[in-house]
Simulated scan of single mutants.
Amino acid sequence: MRGSGTGDGPVTDRHWPGSARLAASCALAFFALTVLVDWDAGTLTVARAALWLALSAAVFAVLLPQRVSAGRGWLMTRGPLGRRVVRTDALVSVRQSGGITTRLVLRDAHGGRLELDTRVLAANPFLWHELDTGLRRSVHRGTLLHGEDAFRRLGERIDTETARAVLRASGLS
């Protein structure tokens, strides 16, 4: 898994390990606190401890973000419920949906469908580059039927955020 943008291997979300550790820490803290409160109340049993463990596992599953990776012509997300892959060089539609967080919905010509948080793309320039390159191939091949404008707007937003971050880091803003 490359992180520097060199080589031909897959690119992954560089922030995922920290997010996974945070999810595990929250689940562990939840388990410890519930068992401690139950023990202090004198009501802790093996069945109740198993219940707290199951609820902690559910907390972990809810908090664990999708793991996003990309390579030449593909994008994949893996989560607790499985993995989804789309061919970025054969996309037929790109759509943004969102309420609190904006999600990108991608569909390819082979029936693949994938949804991911746009913040992952904004925080990982190499993932964004792989997706952008694949989308340009889709446009060139004529498979992209819907969503080129939505993708262009997303690209402009990510480029603006990246430029602001560079200016902040350099002290110019």
Score class of each variant (00 low, 15 high):
Gly71Ile: 02
Asp89Val: 01
Pro65Lys: 08
Ala23Asn: 01
Asp13Thr: 01
Gly42Glu: 10
Arg113Val: 13
Leu22Pro: 00
Arg107Val: 05
Thr143Val: 12
Leu104Arg: 06
Ala29Asn: 08
Gln96Ala: 15
Leu33Lys: 05
Arg48Ser: 05
Ser173Gln: 07
Gly112Trp: 07
Ala47Asn: 06
Val139Met: 08
Gln96His: 11
Ala32Met: 07
His110Leu: 15
Thr43Lys: 06
Arg141Glu: 10
Gly98Cys: 05
Asp13Phe: 01
Asp8Pro: 02
Ala169Phe: 02
Ser97Pro: 00
Gln66Ser: 11
Arg48Trp: 05
Val46Tyr: 02
Asn124Arg: 12
Leu131Ser: 05
Glu130Met: 08
Ala50Gly: 11
Arg78Tyr: 02
Leu91Gly: 09
Arg113His: 06
Arg157Asn: 10
Val139Ile: 14
Ser138His: 14
Leu167Cys: 15
Leu64Gly: 00
Ala123Gly: 14
Gly155Met: 09
His15Ala: 15
Thr133Tyr: 09
Glu130Thr: 02
Gly99Leu: 14
Gly82Tyr: 09
Ser4Asn: 11
Ala169Ser: 13
His146Trp: 13
Ser97His: 05
Asp13Gln: 03
Trp52Gln: 12
Thr102Asn: 04
Gly73Val: 04
Leu44Gly: 00
Val11Thr: 15
Thr102Arg: 03
Glu161Met: 12
Trp39His: 14
Val92Asn: 07
Arg113Ser: 14
Val139Gln: 14
Ser25Pro: 00
Ala50Gln: 11
Thr118Phe: 07
Leu167Gln: 15
Phe31Trp: 13
Thr88Lys: 05
Ser19Lys: 06
